[in-house]
Design a protein around this nucleic acid. Sequence first.
RNA 1: UGCCUGAUGGUGUAAUGGUAGCACAGGCGACUUUGACUCGCCUAGUCAUGGUUCGAAUCCAUGUCGGGCAGCCA
Length: 594
Amino acid sequence: MTAENTDPNAPAPSDFVRDIVAQHVAEKRYPKIVTRFPPEPNGYLHIGHAKAICINFGIARENSGQCNLRMDDTNPAKEEVEYIDAIVTDVKWLIEGWADPYLGFKAKGSTPAAQEFNGLADYHIAAVSPTEIAHAEPFFASHYFDQLYNYAVMLITKGQAYVCDLSPKETDEYRGSPDRPGRDSPFRNRSIAENLDLFARMKAGEFPDAARSLRAKIDMAAPNMWLRDPLLYRIRHTAHHQTGDAWCIYPLYDYAHCLSDYIEGVTHSLCSLEFTDHRPLYDWVLENLNLPRPLPHQYEFSKLIPTYTIVSKRKLIQLVNEKIVTGWDDPRMPTLSGTRRRGVPASAVRRFAIGAGVTKFKSVTEIAVFEHAIREELNGLALRRLAVLKPTRLVLTNIPAGEVIECTATDNPQDENPTTRPIHLTREVFIESDDFAEVPPPKYFRLKPGGEVRLKYACIIKCDEVIKDSAGVVTELRCTADLTTRAGGVNVERKVKGTIHWVSATHCIDAEVRLYDRLFTVPEPDADGEFLKNVNPHSLEVVTAKLEPSLKGATSTQYFQFERLGYFVVDSKDADPSKPIFNRTISLRDTWAK
RNA sequence: UGCCUGAUGGUGUAAUGGUAGCACAGGCGACUUUGACUCGCCUAGUCAUGGUUCGAAUCCAUGUCGGGCAGCCA
């Protein structure tokens, strides 16, 4: 549980978007605050999307409103159903226990209903809650294609849209450039009747791809490029994952998005900065259609870009296709599925995304902020366990072989009344190789020849002898255990500087442990456009670790802290009961290593 | 050279004409059967120049620097 959803006194985030919403609420401008999260199903959601999700769902949550999940699927060439399923899973995961009551879906198969509002024709589609209605699905822009078509006919009838026969290349030339006005298309002044006829025939499939387009008639000399008679529809003889072969003309983003918002009753359409130039077009479409209900408005904020990561679908796809990672859900990927598999709790992602704030300043957020959020969440959630990643054999010469000394270990010292479990001290144990140094550096607290250290939850031991092989590698440490320093023993209060973790050599289990590190070696991997050369060749190290036996049967829904090492989780994909595999989510903070 | 948009410690963000605060990072220390956690202390900032004002990060002007825009992508 996190402060964000348990502390009623925690101040709600404050930012310029929420200020605007608050003002609209005070003015009673809308019957209900409705936002939306509208990904295109052409890739997996990543940490950058988490910010948009948190803002949109957060505002819905704070205002008892609603946030619709909508597939912005107007370009069938780039989209796949695989992505739709993944997006739904990821969004539900991220908001679960936080904003799920505010998630808006629609009844499965429903399309916008024609209604009359204040005496005017209108289209509207109602939301349902997926937690209450079994047959619910996300919204889809493609489910509004009929209505969008009708609106386009309306624009044509008003003389505000026309069919243009210019080729893509010619259209480009006619558009001019930022510092040079464009020229009117020779087809700009076709009669309304001809436009209506041509548009109907475009829909009927009479023309090949890109032979004609429907354009808004605005201003070819506008300083804003997006107002130079932007395309509304293009011809594309391609099947759509939702509508099949029903359509061969598809609306473009600028036309479909604002109307989709309107049809759903969205009030605040929040998007990232690069759409700022599109806002006048968003408004133009809505304002020219005689729509009876209050219009939505668009507000822009900056994206969340962490250091040492890439958040560009195109580039993430490249990492997958070039097999630099094992897939979209590789634990090194900044995708939500990768992050989840890595062992990061949704609450940590939210804490990070919300903490980043909402501004119009293009910023880069240090990954350390995310790492801190992960540790903070996991510190409260993770069960402590003992595990040795790189084992060194240690023999307690004063404990007879076969003797088992039961010790009590704490599951999580952060709990008010922590539960415990038994662990077993035996003659032979494994300790971390790093926890012994034959020639210790200055201020080394751990085990050294002749030195003492405490085995956590057990007793103080003294290193008597170092056994090495012919190559000089340490193969065994021979020590004596001072059993009077055990819990309950007379010398339990005796202090030594170092405490190290260990597992019994006779009771432990083996497991594959995947040690992940940052995927990139530099803070801004794509600064020069060549992110592939900045891939960290050591982003994954696989070891066979020795684990305390209570870890047997662990599942991927449990978070663990291997004491003194870091946070770990069972890999949700590759592990099975006979083959335990753990992912290191993140190491513990280590002020000594610095 | 067009339009849009922005600039507060190393990073992110707050202060909405009235003491520049918070978090991360960094440093020092305390505590510690995790060199974790926790706690205390410290370092460090309003792009520039003018103006309005008793008072400016905030308002105005000019400048500087940055980001975005010319897909039949979203």
